[in-house]
Design a protein around this nucleic acid. Sequence first.
RNA 1: UGCGGUGUAGCUCAGUGGUAGAGCAGGCGGCUGUUAACCGCCGUGUCGCAAGUUCGAAUCUUGCCACCGCAGCCA
Length: 506
Amino acid sequence: MALIAATRYNRGFTRFLHSPRVEQVADIVSVAEARRADSVGREVVVQGWVRTRRDSKAGFSFIEVNDGSCFGNVQIIAEAALPNYESEIKRLSPGCCVGVTGLVKASPGKGQATEIQAAAVVVHGLADVESYPLQKKGHSFEFLRTIAHLRPRTNTFGAVARVRNRACNSIHQFFQERGFLYVHTPIITASDCEGAGAMFQVTALDLAAEAKKAVESEKGEKSEKGEKSEKGPGIDFSKDFFNRPAYLTVSGQLEAETFACALGKTYTFGPTFRAENSNTPRHLAEFWMVEPEAAFFDLWDDMELAEGLLKRIFRDVLQECPEDMQFFNRRIDKTVIETLEHIVESEFLRISYSDAIDILRKSGQRFEFPTAWGNDLQVEHERFLTETHFRRPVILYDYPREIKPFYMRVNDDGRTVRAMDVLVPKVGEIVGGSQREERLDLLEQRMREQDLDPESYWWYLDLRRFGTVPHSGFGLGLERVIQFITGMSNIRDVIPFPRTPGNAEF
RNA sequence: UGCGGUGUAGCUCAGUGGUAGAGCAGGCGGCUGUUAACCGCCGUGUCGCAAGUUCGAAUCUUGCCACCGCAGCCA
C-alpha cells in the first residue's frame, strides 16, 4: 500500500522524481493522521493549504498546513537547507498549496503532539499575499459570504462542513438501521398546488421571445382597438416542455406518501425550493430537507421518530467531531456543547397547542401578538416556551385545524388536527409534521375548505380510495439542525452556497 | 415585503460642518522552537451611488443601491 501511494504521488508530480532526498517510500496521509502521536517515526506525504508561516532566523521555518481532514493544522519544520527554501518556502503565505514529504516527529513545542521534519516541500500553487482575500485573522461572516468560493478554507467553514457531513451520515444511518427506505422524490413537479408556499417556475420556453411576442400582439391590439387591452395574450404553457406549468418542489411529502402507502417506512432527503421573499437568518430559497413518511405510524410514533433522529444526530456529532464542536463552543456560542449533551439525555417535552396557549396566557409575559386560541404561535411565543419557560426542546401538537394544511388528520374534537412541531431554543421550528388524514371524505372536505380542487389531487386521493392506511411523517430542515448544533446564527453560513433573494453568485 | 440599523484603507472600525484616522494585513529591519509570535519604521482612500443645502459635506436633507437585524411566510 505504502509503495503504491508513493509511486502514484511521484508519477503525478515529476519534480519529486528529481529530488534526490526523496528516495524513501512515504505514505500519503491526511493531516489528521499526521497529527496523531502514533504516527511518530513514519515517513509521510501530506498535502494541503498553508494557513500560516513563521520564520526562525536560526535557519528554518514553521509552516502550518491544513487539508480539511480535521480542525487542526500540522506543523511543518522546513530547514533553510532545502533547495527551494529561499525561492519558494519563504514565499509561502496563507492559501498556498503544498505537498510535503518528511518524517513525523514528536513536537517539542506546545499545542501539537507531532510535527513533520520536511525532506521536501513541493509548492503546487502560490497565493499572492497582496490579493488573496483571506488573512491570518478573523473575518466577519458578512465578508466571507462575498467570497463563498474561498471561505471553506477558514476554520469556521471547515468545521461547519465536517459537522454537516457527519449529520447527513447520521440521518441515513438512523433511518437505514430502522428499516426505512430511501426514496428519491422529484425535484421538478407539475402539480401547481402543493400548497407550501411560493414556487419557482421551471420552463424550457424562451421567455424573452415570449415577452417580445406578447408586446407585439399587444401593439397590434392597440392599433386595432385604439386602446390598451386589459388582458395580455399570456404564455401558452401547453407548448412548454411538460405540456403544463412546472415548478421546483417545495416538499417531497405527497410523493413520499405514495411509497409509504406501498412500502411502509420511507424517507426522502434532498433539496427543496421556496420562492418566498424571505430575508431572515433562518430562511433559504434552496435548502435541504429530510422527510420521513411511515405507514401505521400515529402522531406519537412520529414524535418519537423525530426526537430519536435529532438525538442521534447530536450524539454522533458530539462524539465524532469533538475538535470542531470545541471550536464552536469556544468561538461561536459558549453553550452549544452543554446544550446538546443535555438534550441527548433528556426527554423532549410534549404539550398540546391548547396547553401552550394556557401557559402563555398565564405567564404574565407581555407579547406583541395576542395569545388567543386559534391564532398561530408567533416567534416570540415559541421563544418564550423554549428559551424562558421550559429551556429545552418542546413538541407542540394538536393545532387548530384552520391554521394547518389540508392533509393533517382531523381530531375527534373536530377543531384540532394531529400536527406536531418540534421547537428548539434560538432556531425555532426545526421539525414540522403530522399524522396524515387517511379518510377520503374528510380529506376531500378539508381540500374544499382551503379552496383546493380535489380533482387535481386525484392520485393523492387514490391512496385513500384504495387500501388507505393511517400514516405520519415530518419535515426536518437540515440547515436549521446544523445551525442549532454549531450555534451559527445565520443559516447562510451553514450551507456551502446560500441562495437567498438577490443572491446566487457562486 | 414592512420596520430599524449600517455603508470610511485589503479586513475590522473611529471620526457628527473646517486639509482623512487607528488596529490588523502588507513592505523593510531586528529578535525568536515558533504557534492569531513579538519590537521598530513605511505606504495605503471615488468616505456606497446620485442630487440638494452650505463659503465649505464623510458629517445635514432627499432618492437609489447593497448588507445586517427584527417581523411575516416556513424547514
